[in-house]
Simulated assay, not measured.
Amino acid sequence: MSDIELQSAVKLMRQARENARGYADFFTWSPDRDQEELGVVRALAETLALSGEAYFDHIRIRGRGEDPPDCEAVNQLGQRVAIEVTELVDGEAIKAVKNSGNPYKWADWSITKFEESVNHLIARKDSRFPYLKDGPYQGGYTVLLFTDEPMLSKKTVELYLASIVIVEPKNIDKVFLLLSYDPTLKSYPYFTLTNK
């Protein structure tokens, strides 16, 4: 490795360390948000394929300035799919961890907070539909929520989803919720929240 390459690598590591939030950051690819979104979409695609529910492949990141959508892919019929990615995370918990240095200041997730947060994120992405670039997307519009919230385990999310109402979006064809990798499952738990 040359000195220039080493300096560049050290600079990236410093940036990542400065931007690290220290909370619910399994999927974080600091400082590159595009790579983070691409990684999340790939994790879902691989998990769906392992479950025998392959939905899309040939994933491509669109990049800042070319979004929305964050990514596009091709479904099993060869049609382009628009994919928007958004994180389900408690911003106050991120601040609490950063300010205190205590990595265990985890957010409490009541069923009401979960329901309101999920519906808010879906509604926000649903409103972005008219702004999708380079359409039409014959394969539809997919939204991928992801989370690494410590208190939102697979079991908790299953219980909550059995008791809440997900408001049906007008423009989104599919909504997935992807949890961070579970070594006991050797996979990423995921849930299909809406499916037209």
Rank of each mutant, 00 (worst) to 15 (best):
A9M: 15
P136M: 04
K113M: 12
L77G: 12
N75T: 13
F176W: 10
G101Y: 05
R124D: 13
G65H: 08
K105Q: 08
L144P: 04
E36K: 07
H120W: 13
R128Y: 05
Y104T: 13
D182Y: 07
N171A: 06
A20F: 09
Q15E: 13
A49Q: 03
T86L: 04
R62H: 02
P150A: 09
A24T: 06
E87W: 03
V167H: 03
E116W: 01
P183Q: 12
S51Y: 07
E168V: 07
M1R: 12
C71R: 05
F191P: 07
E84V: 03
S117Q: 07
V175T: 12
T86H: 00
I122S: 00
L88Q: 09
G52I: 04
E92A: 12
E92Y: 06
L178K: 03
A43S: 15
G22I: 08
F191D: 02
E116C: 07
I61Q: 08
V10L: 15
F176H: 07
R80Q: 01
A73L: 07
F26C: 03
E116D: 14
T112K: 15
E46S: 15
K113V: 05
E66D: 09
S127N: 07
L177Q: 06
S30E: 12
G101F: 04
K196F: 13
I172P: 04
Q79N: 14
L144R: 02
L6I: 11
D3E: 06
G101H: 06
S180A: 12
F27E: 11
Y141G: 03
V89Q: 08
G139C: 11
L50H: 09
P103Y: 03
K95G: 01
K105N: 02
E149Y: 01
N195F: 15
A16V: 03
A96K: 15
K125W: 05
K98Q: 10
G22D: 10
F146P: 05
R21G: 02
L50V: 10
A162R: 14
H120A: 10
E92K: 11
A9T: 15
W109Y: 12
Y160C: 01
Q79E: 12
D25E: 13
I83P: 00
N75L: 06
L152G: 01
Q138Y: 06
D3G: 12
W29P: 05
A49W: 06
S51H: 09
D134W: 00
S187R: 07
Q7V: 08
L179H: 03
N171P: 04
V40M: 10
V118F: 05
I164F: 02
E46P: 10
D70H: 03
N119T: 13
V89P: 04
V157A: 03
Y55H: 15
K98I: 15
E46N: 14
L132H: 11
E37W: 04
G135T: 11
R64N: 14
R64G: 09
P169A: 09
L152C: 14
P130M: 04
R124P: 01
N102F: 12
V157W: 02
S110M: 09
